[in-house]
Design a protein around this nucleic acid. Structure first.
Length: 213
DNA sequence: CTCCGGCGAG
DNA sequence: CTCGCTGGAG
């Protein structure tokens, strides 16, 4: 796949976007990314607003709230027991200065530090650092993973991430991350990909046929 | 590899 | 009804 050509076409399709985390507290951004794990954006937004309604927006508020109350707020997002536990863990971590410390480290080391926290994996760390630390990193979510495989860029997280970063300049990676996700949602879907109307079908290795990828 | 999970699309 | 969602842990 000619990634540069693909990205240039996506630029026409998705000119720009308003980051939802703009001016947002880094802790809340992390909370949002955790809630979004394997969860649709609509469900994520619902859970986030339920947290706000209950005033559960700071590390101290989350730490002092009953586990059950957090679980209830997160219920619409699914995986709510695990996520409530993760929020407790990152709240403790943030209050111990972990979050602040990570924001002062080089991106590679910040990533390692974050991934020591239970519930923060490579994708959550990558996306967080890209969002709030301006790290030129393309976090590979489920959409980008699927697209990367269909484009023949690799089969695992790191290889797809590296292949994309090799073709996309640092200052465009944040945009590309978002654009690829939008493209994945609208065209390169997991189920029933819309190859017939896809603006990239003529340069896609998969063309119109849809293998089980 | 399996589990966690409510929820919307088809 | 099934599948998959800006995943991660065990």
């Amino acid at each position: 796949m000619n990634v540069k050509e693909a990205i240039s076409r996506l630029a026409a399709l998705y000119p720009d976007f308003q980051p939802w985390w703009e001016g947002e507290d880094p802790f809340l951004v992390l909370v949002g990314i955790v809630i979004s794990q394997n969860t649709s954006s609509a469900s994520t937004r619902r859970a986030l607003s339920r947290l706000r309604e209950r005033g559960l927006t700071s590390p101290s508020a989350i730490l002092s709230a009953p586990q059950e109350e957090i679980e209830d707020a997160l219920r619409p997002a699914g995986l709510y027991r695990a996520k409530a536990r993760i929020l407790k863990d990152i709240a403790r971590w943030a209050m111990d200065g972990g979050l602040e410390r990570v924001l002062s480290l080089p991106h590679a080391r910040a990533r390692e530090e974050m991934m020591k926290v239970r519930g923060i994996g490579r994708k959550t760390a990558d996306v967080f650092l890209a969002f709030v630390a301006s790290a030129p990193i393309i976090g590979v979510d489920t959409h980008i993973m699927r697209i990367g495989r269909r484009w023949g860029l690799g089969t695992d997280y790191e290889s797809i991430k590296e292949a994309l970063e090799r073709e996309i300049p640092p200052e465009r990676r944040l945009w590309a991350h978002k654009a690829l996700i939008s493209f994945g949602r609208e065209y390169c879907r997991a189920r029933r990909p819309r190859c017939d109307v896809c603006p990239l079908s003529d340069i896609c290795p998969k063309r119109g046929i849809q293998p089980e990828l």
